[in-house]
């Protein structure tokens, strides 16, 4: 699971986090996190984003508030999270226990030519989340920390904010469906049943 760089392989991380996922609903930020969750296995309980950069965590908050009994996980990149840092304050204050945010931090903007992000230069997202008041934060750098990450996501005593340092290598594209109305409707049906379409 560790790559030659000594950092985690993003797909192996996603595979481990999404194994035995139970009733978990997953939102993935645009770009590589969306390809990653799709590589693990596309399903109705996944909402891979094609846009809305900076909004993944807040989408997770709306979903977690609407479905308080279900585990909600946002998987996103460091660039996407950096664009919406105010959400750390909003979500920490909300004290939404069933919401977890996992930042796959490769310290680069992967979709635009691998330019460096602020995390490459020392910006500490875990420290920012802790300072915002997240009751649970984690920094994951080795495979043996992943079981604890999985346990924390499923514990639903969050909100949880975790950063996993991942290898910056580019992996083969595994694209999810591009029709957003379909992606939204299939998750609504998975959550609400057929009534989703007549509400």
């Amino acid at each position: 699971m560790l790559t030659k760089s000594g950092k985690l392989d993003r797909r192996a991380l996603c595979t481990a986090v999404l194994s035995d996922r139970g009733d978990m609903l997953v939102i993935a930020g645009l770009g590589a996190p969306a390809w990653d969750i799709t590589a693990v296995g596309d399903c109705a309980e996944n909402l891979p984003l094609w846009g809305g950069m900076g909004g993944a965590a807040m989408m997770g908050l709306g979903l977690a508030l609407a479905q308080p009994s279900r585990t909600v996980l946002v998987i996103t990149g460091d660039g996407e999270m950096l664009m919406g840092l105010g959400a750390l304050a909003t979500i920490a204050v909300s004290r939404t226990p069933n919401l977890s945010i996992l930042v796959q931090d490769n310290e680069h903007y992967g979709e635009t030519g691998m330019q460096e992000t602020a995390t490459k230069h020392g910006v500490d997202l875990v420290g920012m989340a802790r300072a915002a008041g997240f009751p649970h934060t984690m920094l994951v750098t080795t495979p043996d920390e992943i079981p604890a990450l999985r346990a924390a996501i499923h514990a639903k005593n969050g909100p949880l904010f975790a950063v996993a340092k991942i290898d910056a290598g580019t992996l083969p594209l595994v694209l999810p469906p591009r029709e957003g109305a379909y992606l939204q409707a299939r998750m609504r049906e998975a959550v609400l049943g057929k009534a989703a379409h007549t509400a």
Binding site: L25, I27, L47, G52, G55, M58, M59, G60, L61, G62, L63, A64, L65, A66, Q67, Q184, M187, R188, V191, L192, A196, A199
Partner: peptide
């Protein structure tokens, strides 16, 4: 967007 996904 997230609220609507979850039925709120």
């Amino acid at each position: 967007a997230g609220a609507w996904l979850g039925g709120d």
